[in-house]
C-alpha cells in the first residue's frame, strides 16, 4: 500500500475515531468517579442506561429534557459561526419565558387560537432582545460577549423570581411563587400521549433548516469567512458587526422559544429556576457537536437522557441527582481533552 492510501485511510477514519476516543475517555472518567464515591461503576452505568431509556416513560422524560437543550445548543452554535462565544442561552431562555408569559397573561380572560402563535413569537422576541444587549455591547463597545452573557444570565433569572414573587404571583397559590396556570390554548400539542411536546419537532426542523442555510447559502459562507479569516472578510467588504448582530439575534430567539415552550407546555406556569441549566447543557452540546447543527440533534438527546437519568438514580440507587451534574462536567472534560489533544499541533 502506498503512503498516500494510508494517509487517506487515516483521514477517513479520523472523524470516526474522535468520538470513539472521546466516548472512551468519558466512560473511564465516569467509572473513576463512581469508584471514588464507592459505587460499582458497571452497576451504576446500568442504572443510568435503565433510567434514561429503559421504558417508554423514561424515553419520554429524556426527550422532554432534550427539547430545551436542543434549542439552546442551536442558540450557542449560531453565534459561534462568526466566532462569538455566547454563554447567554440560559438568560435568553428566561427572557423568552417572561415575554411569552406576559402575552399569555394579557390575553387571559378570553384565550383564543391566536394565543399560542403570539406567545411563541413574543417569547422568541424576548430572547432576541436579551441576546442583542450582549451583541450590541460586543459590536459597539468591544465588551467581551462571554462575560456579558454570563452576567446578564443572573439578571434574567432574578427578573423571573421578582415577577413570580411580586406582580405576576397567582394570589390563589398561597405560598408557592408562580403565575396562574396557563390555559390549554397556550400549550403546544403533545406527542405520543406523553409530556413530550411539539417543541421537539420544531427544534429538529430548525436544526435541519439552519444546517442547510449555513452550509448551502452564500450567507453561510460569509459567516465562515468572518470566523476563520476576519482580515479576509474585511478586505472582501463583509460586515462583521451586522452579521454578528444577526446571529446573536437569531440565537437569542431560539433560546427564548425554548424558554416559553418549556414554561407553557412542561411547567404550565412561570416559576423560578425553570431553565435548570438547559442553557449551559446547550452550550456543552454545541461544543460536542463542534457547532454542527445536524450533530446537535443526537447529542442533545444524549445529554437530555443523561440528565433525565438523575431522577432514576435517586430513586433506584439512592444517589443524589447532583451526580448527573458531575457526569455532565466529566463529559465536557473528556471531549475537550481528546479534541484538544488531537488538535494540539494546530496553532491555537
Amino acid at each position: 500500500m502506498s503512503g498516500g492510501t494510508v494517509d487517506r485511510a487515516r483521514a477517513m477514519a479520523a472523524p470516526l475515531g474522535r468520538p470513539a476516543l472521546a466516548a472512551a475517555a468519558f466512560v473511564v472518567l465516569a467509572a473513576v468517579f463512581f469508584a471514588v464515591i464507592g459505587r460499582n461503576p458497571l452497576a451504576m452505568i446500568g442504572v443510568v442506561l435503565e433510567a434514561a431509556a429503559g421504558d417508554s416513560y423514561a424515553i419520554g422524560e429524556s426527550l422532554v429534557r432534550a427539547t430545551p437543550i436542543l434549542l439552546c445548543a442551536l442558540a450557542t452554535a449560531l453565534p459561534a459561526r462568526v466566532g462569538l462565544i455566547s454563554v447567554g442561552a440560559e438568560g435568553q431562555f428566561y427572557a423568552g419565558a417572561i415575554a411569552g408569559t406576559g402575552t399569555v397573561l394579557s390575553m387571559l380572560p378570553t384565550p383564543g387560537w391566536t394565543m399560542l402563535p403570539l406567545m411563541l413569537v413574543t417569547g422568541a422576541l424576548g430572547g432576541m432582545v436579551w441576546s442583542l444587549v450582549a451583541g450590541l455591547l460586543r459590536t459597539g463597545l468591544q465588551v467581551n460577549e462571554t462575560i456579558s452573557t454570563l452576567l446578564t444570565n443572573y439578571v434574567a433569572a432574578l427578573l423571573v423570581t421578582w415577577l413570580v414573587y411580586g406582580p405576576w404571583k397567582n394570589p390563589a397559590s398561597q405560598g408557592w411563587p408562580a403565575t396562574v396556570e396557563f390555559p390549554a390554548a397556550a400549550r403546544l400539542p403533545a406527542l405520543f400521549d406523553s409530556r413530550v411536546h411539539a417543541g421537539l419537532l420544531i427544534g429538529i426542523a430548525l436544526a435541519v433548516v439552519l444546517h442547510l442555510v449555513l452550509t448551502r447559502t452564500r450567507w453561510g459562507l460569509v459567516l465562515d469567512v468572518l470566523r476563520s479569516n476576519p482580515r479576509a472578510g474585511l478586505v472582501a467588504g463583509l460586515d462583521f458587526r451586522r452579521n454578528a448582530l444577526i446571529v446573536m439575534a437569531l440565537g437569542g430567539a431560539l433560546a427564548g422559544l425554548a424558554g416559553i415552550a418549556e414554561t407553557a407546555s412542561i411547567q404550565g406556569r412561570l416559576q423560578s429556576d425553570i431553565a435548570g441549566g438547559a442553557g449551559f447543557s446547550g452550550f456543552l452540546v454545541a461544543w460536542l457537536a463542534r457547532n454542527h447543527c445536524l450533530r446537535i440533534i443526537p447529542l442533545s438527546l444524549l445529554v437530555g437522557a443523561l440528565l433525565a437519568s438523575g431522577d432514576g438514580l435517586q430513586m433506584f440507587a439512592q444517589v443524589p441527582s447532583s451526580v448527573t451534574l458531575v457526569i455532565q462536567g466529566l463529559l465536557f472534560v473528556a471531549v475537550l481533552l481528546v479534541n484538544g489533544w488531537l488538535d494540539r499541533k494546530r496553532p491555537a
Binding site: W287, S322, V323, V326, I327, Q328, G329, F332, L336, G340
Partner: peptide, 22 residues
C-alpha cells in the same frame, strides 16, 4: 491538551458545581 480556554473554564465550572452539590 491546548483546549479552548473559555470552554475549559465552563467545563471546570460545571464540574465544580456538580462536585460541590454532591
Amino acid at each position: 491538551a491546548r483546549a479552548n480556554q473559555f470552554a475549559s473554564g465552563l467545563a471546570v465550572w460545571m464540574l465544580g458545581f456538580g462536585l460541590s452539590a454532591y
